[in-house]
Amino acid sequence: MLESLESWSWALDGWIIAAGALCAAASALLGPYLVLRKMSMMGDAISHAVLPGIAIAFLVTESRASLPMFIGAAIVGLLTAIFTEWIRRFGKVDEGASMGVVFTGLFALGLVLVVQAADKVDLDPGCVLYGAIELTPLDTTTVLGYDVPRVVITLGAVALLNLTCVLLFYKELKITSFDPALATTLGISSRLMHYLLMTLVAITAVASFEAVGNILVVAMLIVPAAAAYMLTDRLSVMIFLSVIIGIASAALGHLSAIMVPAIFGFGSTITAGMMALSAGVLFVVAALCGPRHGIIIKLIQRRRFAAKCLGAPH
């Protein structure tokens, strides 16, 4: 198994892990809010729905330049949140269904546009789904005299943006996640915070697009945050743990992508997939062994409690 690591090169694999870790960190900063607001599936919806934004950016600029893509995606991400809210409020449709209607419609629109744009710009559908993080080190620009992959820079910038927003708006995000009605009466617009969060999610989704593709953004958004939620009761700790777990999943994912298939005699596999799987494994561990909310702990407590009931003298 360890022979598969012989071709390890820090110049290549290091950057891959860095890209993955930054993607995970950027997503994991926002994840706890999504989980607490019961908006986990919104992450999935937005990452599907950004497709038309990107397609329009392609059609308009006729290139794969980053900035128009981000703008297009941010706008569409925001629209997804707005349309979902409209349908839920005016149509009185269940929240999940509203999301479903909006993102499938937008995704279909995006597909149509992408097919139109396909011969102008080269788009590989596989790449759309699961990214191509392995190619990260090949596309570099020079920063301060060092060769840094473009994706790492983009993801680093987005991670920084998310960190800034989370720090700046810490208490606003906290109160609007917990009690939006109260927040509004205190003058903190819940709606504004909601849309801010959704825009950040959209931007993160697009930035991660190239690294891990559009489905796996959801993994990075939700799973580390869920794992952290099983381990702590404090929001700040939850955010911190979420980032740590995310970075760990990224590292673990890349390592296992190389090593695990070798056990069965295959070549290495897609890193993004293994990153999501690693996050899942870490979640299961946290869910089982969490010190206060873990399943094993609760089982033991219940047994002890039942025994206490039966044995206690009256």
């Binding site: 407590q301 219940r302 409690f305 009931c309």
Partner: peptide, 13 residues
């Protein structure tokens, strides 16, 4: 009859 949520008893004996 005893019923508990998590560790908190709600109905006791």
């Amino acid at each position: 009859l005893t019923v508990a949520y998590d560790r908190k008893p709600v109905l006791w004996d």
